[in-house]
Design a protein around this nucleic acid. Structure first.
Lengths: 227, 227
DNA sequence: GCCGTACCGAACCGTACAGTACGGCATCCC
DNA sequence: GGGATGCCGTACTGTACGGTTCGGTACGGC
């Protein structure tokens, strides 16, 4: 833990803490680490192996990231920094545009969740759950870190849903529950199957069709106002 | 691997291969192992620790289960042997009874998937995914083994769904797709959240309410015949 | 009594891997 | 030039844990 982040020289000026979490060199190393993680799982990511693959020394790894867990955390942060922003200004004005926005979200969600990178990162985080209840020393673990990506997607969807409700495109009571429904219709049991290694993934077109069907079902459930 | 299963004396008679996969002593050891796995994750389950906790010797562990992976596999089998049978004779005759059966399934699914045992076993299997594509020597790994439990539940649901279709209670085209929808409506993102350690689990009553709502939604989507 | 089987307990071995230490080689600054 | 810094590469330490071996004990059959 304890990500060093001493790439910036000193605390003289407000460094761009958000855009460049790590130095370019460190980002390159993290990219290699992520690749190793995707193909081979967590066990394949040893410090010696990473150092050799990334042409850096173990000493540097430990200086930059503290320890092995720090490397794992950095990988998650590194990847989370690449997820598309919330796109706050997406406020479709017509029901058709709203449906289009929903469909786009569904396609994105499917593509992301079934990508090898996401699967690897989810597997990593899931594997790092122990009796970590009431653990105060570190900021949670895999769970909280992955949520850095998950929450952002969720926020985007809930933003869209509440907007649709305000515009009377759809009707619902609780946003979180409604989001869960939408999520379930889109993903079904595909995610857990993929996590478990059930290869028969659907192709690109299949995903689009699936997303469209899920959105249709979702709108069927939530268009008739029930109050 | 290579579960020994030499608890029966010889191959003189057809032993009850289905009901008692392991000897009582072995089952007791597996129960301890499962407990250790549930609280503490895979890393907490060491052979030495299990031997001490179960009051047996490591030698016996290796004789019975072959190696550590054999122990893990045995745990999965041991737990899978406890899931309720398919209940093939569940053929509700009225729409109300059909809905009741669906609701019962939904409640069961929620309860099982969010139980600590199921979560621990899923985490274990997910953590055992590597480049295990095209592996012929062992019968798959975690994925296939957990499916021993997953498929049984799925079979029960699909059986129920096709029965409902035959009786004209519901309408659908593809059973697998429809099952995925039902699964998604019931589970939503609760499973992945739980797997990631998101504690805010809903209580018993919340689960029942959630199940009822999911079944309502499912019937809304599939009652109007569309042909 | 003796033998075989099954088991426990403890010691032991081998190895993989996290983490550390150190020598050497650049580059920058004075 | 000479020091300081940053990094590579390699070698090393410590340890945890999977797997094996072996002595000792209880039981059941002959």
């Amino acid at each position: 833990m304890a990500i060093a982040n001493d790439n910036q020289s000193a605390d003289t000026d407000a460094q761009p803490h958000e855009s460049s979490e790590f130095s370019p060199r460190q980002n390159a190393v993290l990219a290699v680490a992520l690749t190793m993680l995707v193909e081979g799982g967590e066990k394949a990511l040893t410090t010696a192996g990473l150092a050799k693959a990334a042409n850096c020394s173990k000493e540097s790894l430990y200086k930059w990231f503290g320890d092995r867990d720090g490397i794992l955390a950095a990988i998650v942060i590194y990847q989370a920094s690449k997820v598309r922003g919330v796109d706050e200004r997406a406020t479709p004005a017509t029901p058709e545009a709203f449906k289009t926005a929903l469909t786009a979200f569904a396609e994105d969600l499917l593509a992301v969740l079934l990508s090898n990178t996401s699967l690897a990162l989810n597997r990593l985080s899931i594997g790092h759950i122990r009796g970590e209840t009431t653990r105060g020393d570190n900021p949670g673990l895999g769970a909280v870190l992955v949520d850095k990506g998950k929450r952002r997607i969720e926020a985007r969807a809930i933003h869209l849903l509440t907007h649709g409700k305000r515009q009377r495109f759809i009707a619902f009571d609780d946003a979180a529950t409604t989001y869960s429904t939408l999520y379930g219709l889109i993903i079904g049991d595909a995610h857990i199957r993929a996590l478990l290694g059930d290869d028969p993934q659907i192709d690109e077109d299949g995903q689009k069709a699936h997303a469209a069907r899920a959105v249709d079902q979702f709108l069927t459930l939530h268009t008739q106002s029930d109050f």
